[in-house]
Amino acid sequence: MSTIARIMSHALFPVRVDPLKSVEQEAEFSGSIAVSKLDRLQDFLQDDSGEAQVEIQFGHDEQGTALLRGKSHANVRMTCQRCMNPVEVALVTDFELGIVFSDEQAKHLDKQYEPVIAEHESLELLPVIEDELILSLPMYAYHKECGDHELVDTPKEVEKPVETQAPNNPFSVLEQLKKQ
Score class of each variant (00 low, 15 high):
residue 170 P to S: 02
residue 2 S to Y: 07
residue 22 S to N: 06
residue 111 K to G: 11
residue 46 Q to I: 14
residue 6 R to F: 04
residue 151 L to Y: 02
residue 106 A to N: 07
residue 157 E to M: 13
residue 79 T to P: 01
residue 67 L to S: 03
residue 94 D to P: 02
residue 50 G to I: 11
residue 69 R to K: 13
residue 83 C to R: 06
residue 23 V to E: 00
residue 58 F to S: 01
residue 63 Q to K: 14
residue 66 A to K: 13
residue 28 E to R: 15
residue 33 I to T: 03
residue 122 S to N: 05
residue 97 L to E: 09
residue 135 L to F: 11
residue 178 K to C: 02
residue 2 S to E: 02
residue 47 D to W: 15
residue 118 A to M: 05
residue 49 S to H: 09
residue 36 S to W: 09
residue 141 A to L: 07
residue 72 S to D: 02
residue 65 T to E: 05
residue 61 D to C: 08
residue 19 P to F: 00
residue 80 C to G: 05
residue 70 G to H: 04
residue 30 S to V: 14
residue 60 H to G: 03
residue 11 A to C: 04
residue 21 K to I: 14
residue 53 Q to R: 12
residue 46 Q to C: 12
residue 112 Q to T: 15
residue 24 E to T: 10
residue 173 V to P: 01
residue 59 G to D: 10
residue 140 Y to S: 09
residue 151 L to A: 05
residue 58 F to I: 04
residue 88 E to D: 11
residue 156 K to V: 11
residue 19 P to T: 00
residue 146 C to K: 11
residue 50 G to C: 08
residue 138 P to H: 03
residue 138 P to G: 03
residue 89 V to R: 07
residue 65 T to F: 02
residue 155 P to R: 14
residue 111 K to F: 13
residue 133 L to P: 10
residue 16 R to Q: 02
residue 45 L to I: 09
residue 138 P to A: 05
residue 171 F to Q: 02
residue 148 D to K: 12
residue 160 K to T: 14
residue 147 G to N: 07
residue 179 K to T: 12
residue 77 R to P: 01
residue 11 A to S: 02
residue 161 P to W: 06
residue 103 D to R: 07
residue 86 P to C: 08
residue 168 N to V: 15
